[in-house]
Amino acid sequence: MLLSLTWLEIKKISVRPRSYIGFVAITLVILLIQLAMWIDGTSYIGFVTQNIEQTFLFEGKILNGNLICFIILQTLIIQIPLLIALVTGDLVSGEAANGTIRLLLTRPVSRTNILLSKFFAGSFYTLLMLVWLGILALFVSLVAFGPGDLIVLKTDEVVILQSSDVMWRFLTALSLAFLALTLVGALSMMLSCFTENSIGPIIITMAIIILFTIVGTMEVPLFDKVKPFLFTTHMIVWRNLFEDPLPVDQIRNSILILFGHIVAFLSISLLYFNKKDILS
């Protein structure tokens, strides 16, 4: 039953125009970055590496598909949660706003199954978006710019990853990004249970993410104590995949925290939604 309900939810998502906004936005941003790099990538690389060129001598093709993919992932990290919340934040409140929740909840299906099917459908949408991102950012970049070693510049170090050592890192990074974005989906769906308008949960989700990100990036001693507890700190765990050696404990810790948040958000949603009086 849950599987067929999820399939019905996926079909509903697929016929809504807003579901395609994310795909169009991602496609445009990625193509724009790839075009900019194609035209003026050498100058960009020269600018970024100018400080370390006095210490290092770079040989080979720095501007390659792997680097372009890494730049794209870094750039899209803020936008993608918004694009996900645009759909998942509307999953419950959209039904209330349209009035269809009355018909939906008078069918012989438990509220738990209805909510879980919406969560799984939202997660499937997230997965599709990441697959599309992976195809455009990784495979198109590799075809257009060719493979090569990936140079990751950090504030205090330079990580050079060999071309043969990069693909699994990207695929694992996308899997971790899926976990992080599923959390965004669970958060926005939880907020969606509390309201009866479509825009509220989307805006609140983004406000929470922006607020937590600001707190997480500011170097203030007071904030240092709360940073490990903010889910946004762990949403960027995918970046750890591009370190050498891998900080395995840190990655495992972040995965557990992200997973714990998803379970918590989903549990709150289920508790509230099962008891909610439908007055819309």
Binding site: K12, V15, R16, P17, N98, G99, T100, R102, L103, T106, R107, P108, V109, S110
Partner: peptide
């Protein structure tokens, strides 16, 4: 027996709203 009962009821509650894009 919520599910058993709702399976045998057809209803309109206030105005009937549907998925407009379907």
């Amino acid at each position: 027996h919520r599910n058993f009962i709702l399976g045998k009821i057809g209803c309109i509650v206030e105005k009937p709203d549907f998925y407009k894009y379907l």
